[in-house]
């Protein structure tokens, strides 16, 4: 299975926003709502995981 390219933070954030929009639609069915919710939470997890990895590296280039 090709390694699923880790989505960038922007992509995950955009999808999270889309899920929340979808959930706000009046005529959404129960199944669609539950699916949108699950996806939304998954994207939330990806975003918060990224935001909480303090991986910062500071390096100085030496010629």
């Amino acid at each position: 299975m090709i390694a699923q390219k880790k989505p960038t933070f922007e992509e995950a954030l955009k999808k999270l926003e889309q899920s929340s929009e979808k959930l706000k639609q009046e005529n959404i069915t129960l199944e669609e709502a539950l699916k949108a919710f699950e996806e939304g939470i998954a994207y939330y997890d990806q975003c918060s995981e990224l935001l909480n990895t303090a991986k910062q590296k500071i390096e100085t280039y030496s010629k």
Partner: peptide, 27 residues
């Protein structure tokens, strides 16, 4: 600013929970 983004994402999560609950209640 990561702090801002964390707050924003957190708020998104609350919104998700609220709207799915309201949807379930109305069903």
């Amino acid at each position: 600013d990561l702090a801002e983004l964390r707050a924003y994402v957190q708020d998104m999560r609350e919104k998700l929970i609220l709207s799915v609950n309201s949807c379930i209640r109305c069903k």
